[in-house]
Amino acid sequence: MSVQKILAISGKPGLYELKLQTRTGFVAESLLDGKRITVGMRSNVSLLSEIAVYTYSEEIRLFDVFKAIATKENDGLAISHKENDDKLRSYFREILPEFDEDRVYTSDIKKVLNWYNTLQPKGLVTVEALSKEDAKEETAE
């Protein structure tokens, strides 16, 4: 499984892996329970590889944020996304000190931490795995 095929589907809980494309959309498998669903073209779907976090100077790719969390936590789990808002913001400030506090909401931080904690037990967001993905992207360019 590659982190490049991980999806967030609006209105559906958790994350999904893109399995195959169909004429009317695609088939995705839940990372939470393994159930497969068909997703139509009208659904709002985001590839995690295309998501970025605002900073004061630029946008940082989500996987670079995941790499910073993995480095801080020695490839372990991050704090729970259910912590209070102040604790979440201060934790995120440790990981990404220059994040734009006006444009990155607490709900965004909760999503990032929830997604990280979903992907981490599957070995997809370790420093080593994310470094390999970076190397693949550089050779593709």
Rank of each mutant, 00 (worst) to 15 (best):
Y105T: 11
D108A: 11
A52Y: 05
Y56T: 12
T106E: 07
E73W: 05
S43W: 00
D108Q: 11
S107Y: 09
V127R: 06
G40N: 09
A129W: 05
E58H: 09
R61C: 01
A129V: 04
G76W: 04
A78F: 04
V65S: 00
A129T: 13
V125C: 13
L47W: 15
E94V: 00
I95P: 03
I51V: 15
Y105M: 12
T38E: 15
D33R: 09
F66E: 02
E73I: 03
Q120W: 01
R36F: 10
F63P: 00
R93H: 13
E101R: 12
L96M: 09
G76Q: 10
S46D: 14
K136L: 05
F92I: 06
K132L: 13
V45W: 01
P97S: 10
A52D: 07
T38N: 15
S49P: 02
E73M: 11
L124G: 11
G123V: 13
T55R: 11
D86M: 06
Q120C: 04
Y91G: 01
D102E: 09
K122H: 14
N114R: 15
L113G: 02
L124D: 11
T106C: 08
R42L: 00
I60P: 01
I69M: 08
L130F: 07
N117F: 00
T118S: 10
L119N: 08
G34M: 10
S49T: 12
F66N: 04
N117C: 02
L77F: 11
K111Q: 11
I79M: 14
K87Y: 10
Y91T: 01
E50N: 14
K72I: 05
S131T: 15
P121F: 03
I37N: 05
Y105S: 13
K67A: 08
K82I: 03
I109V: 13
N44T: 04
S90Y: 02
Y116S: 05
K111E: 06
Y105H: 13
T106F: 03
D64K: 09
L77S: 15
F66H: 03
V104W: 12
E50T: 14
A129S: 14
V53R: 01
W115G: 01
D75F: 06
Y116G: 07
S90V: 04
E73H: 05
L77W: 03
S43N: 05
H81D: 15
E133D: 10
K132F: 07
P97F: 12
V125K: 03
W115K: 03
G123L: 12
K82Q: 12
K87H: 13
F66R: 05
K111L: 09
K87C: 07
I37H: 14
V112R: 13
E58Y: 06
M41D: 00
K72H: 14
Q120P: 02
F92G: 06
L130P: 07
E73G: 03
D75Q: 08
Y116C: 07
N114Q: 15
T118V: 13
E101G: 10
K136D: 01
T126M: 11
L96R: 08
K110I: 12
E98N: 14
D85H: 09
K132T: 06
R103V: 04
L47D: 09
K111T: 02
I37A: 07
S107I: 12
S107K: 14
S131I: 01
K110A: 06
R103W: 08
